[in-house]
Nucleic acid binder design. Structure first.
Lengths: 218, 218
DNA sequence: ACCATTTTATACCGATCGGTATATTATTGC
DNA sequence: GCAATAATATACCGATCGGTATAAAATGGT
C-alpha cells in the first residue's frame, strides 16, 4: 500500500520522503508529510510546548507553506494525535496477529510496549502524553484519547473473551476487569520506565501480568 | 504550626491569604504565596502552557513583583512541583496514620487517591502531570518526579513489610513487586478516571488491589 | 506546451512571551 | 519615628508567538 516518492527539490531544498499512497494529491501528501514530521515533536514537547517554528524547522518548509495546508496549530496537533494513535493501534494489531494462541497474543502486546518504551525518537505513549496535557485544557483531544483508551481496553478484553471461549482460559478470568487493570498497569509502567530511564519496573509489571494470565490458563 | 495573616491592602489591592508560619519574612511569605497560587495553575495547564501573566493574574501582583521574588518562570515551576508533591505526600501519610492495621493503611491510601481524583481544583496527580511533560524536556523536574515515585513506592513497600512482620500478611506477599504494581495501577487509574470523567474504572482497579491484599491476609 | 489552479515562499501583522531597569512604596531594625 | 533596606509597581525590552496577505513558483488537465 505504500510507495516511496522521489525527494523533490524546490527552491533548492530537499523536502519530502515517504508517502503512503501515490494517488494522493500533492496537497494531501504534503499534509501527511507535515503531520509525520510534527507528530514526534509534539509527542515529545507537548502541544503547548511545540511552536509552529519547530514544525517549520522539522519539515524544512516555510510558515506560509504550513498554513497553506493547515488552518491552525490546533489542527496539526489533532492530526498528529490521530496519526500517532492510528500507528500505535496498527502496530499492536500487527504484533498480536503474529501470535497463535490468545495467551501469546496478550504476551505479544506486552512485548510491544516493552520494545516501544526503549525506542529512540518515540518519546513515550502518545495516549499518555496527549491525555495528560489535554485533560484540563483541550476537550477535543481529551475525547480522542478517551476513545483510544476504550478501544485498547476492548482489544484486550476481546482476546481474553475468545481465550475463554476457546477453552484456553478459565471461565473465572474476567475480561473487563483484566483489560482495565492491565491497561492501567501498562500505561503506568511505561510512564515510570521513561522517568526512571530503564525498564526494571516495567519488566516487573509485565511479568506480574503474565503470571496472572498463566494462573488463569487451564 | 500554621497561622493566618490579616490580608494586606497594598495599592488598594487585597493580596495575601494564608501563611504557614508567622516568623517568615515578608519575602518568604510572598514567595510561598506565589507558589501556592501558581501551583494549581501549572498542574492544570502544564509548565509550558502556563504564562507568567497567568501567575500575575492569579496572585493579583505585578510582573515586577513576581520577578522580585523569583529568578525565572522555571524556578516557580520547580517550587510549584515541590509544593504539590510535599502536600500530596503529607496528605497520604496523614490518611495512613489514622488507620490501625497495615491492611487498613493500604486501603486508606486507595481511598485518598479515589477522593483526590474527583476533587475540584485538583487537576490530577502532580507526579503524572509534571512527569509526562518533563520526561523529554526538563531533566531537573524529571529527577524530582523520579524521586517522588520511588518515595511513594517505598512507602507502600514499607507498610507491606511491617504487615508481614506483624503476622498480618503472608510471607509470600512480596513488598517490592506489590508496591511497583500498585503504584502503576493507581497512577494509570487516576489518569483514566480524569479522562473518562468518572471513577468507574479506577474503582475496579482499586477493588482489584484490595482483593489482592485480602488474598495475602492470614 | 499552455494556462488555470494549487501550492509555495517572502514579508509582515498585532499580541504575547519571558524578563528587566527604575522609581516608588512598604517594611524593619534601632 | 527615622533611616536603611526590602519589596513592589510601572514601563519597557527584544524575541517569539500564532497567523496572514501576497506574489512567485510548481502542478495538473487538456
Amino acid at each position: 500500500m505504500c510507495c516511496i516518492d522521489t525527494p523533490k527539490k524546490i527552491f533548492g531544498k530537499l523536502y519530502q520522503s515517504v508517502y503512503f499512497c501515490g494517488v494522493m494529491t500533492k496537497a494531501e501528501r504534503t499534509r501527511h508529510f507535515i503531520v509525520e514530521k510534527a507528530a514526534p515533536i509534539i509527542n515529545k514537547k507537548g502541544m503547548a510546548g511545540t511552536s509552529i517554528n519547530d514544525i517549520v524547522e522539522a519539515t524544512r518548509l516555510t510558515k506560509g507553506s504550513v498554513y497553506g495546508n493547515f488552518e491552525s496549530k490546533d489542527e496539526i496537533c489533532l492530526e498528529a494525535f490521530d496519526y500517532l494513535a492510528k500507528r500505535v493501534g496498527a502496530d499492536i494489531v500487527m504484533a498480536m496477529s503474529r501470535a497463535n494462541s490468545n495467551k501469546d497474543k496478550l504476551f505479544a502486546l506486552f512485548e510491544y510496549y516493552l520494545a516501544v518504551v526503549s525506542q529512540e525518537n518515540t518519546y513515550g505513549c502518545p495516549l499518555l502524553n496527549f491525555g495528560t496535557e489535554a485533560d484540563d485544557t483541550n476537550p477535543i483531544v481529551k475525547q480522542k484519547v478517551n476513545k483510544a483508551i476504550l478501544a485498547t481496553e476492548n482489544l484486550i478484553a476481546k482476546v481474553v473473551r475468545s481465550g475463554i471461549e476457546a477453552g484456553e482460559f478459565k471461565r473465572s478470568f474476567d475480561p473487563e476487569t483484566f483489560s482495565i487493570k492491565a491497561f492501567a498497569m501498562i500505561e503506568g509502567g511505561m510512564w515510570i520506565a521513561r522517568l526512571q530511564g530503564n525498564n526494571k519496573q516495567l519488566q516487573i509489571i509485565l511479568d506480574s501480568l503474565k503470571q496472572e494470565i498463566d494462573d488463569y490458563c487451564q
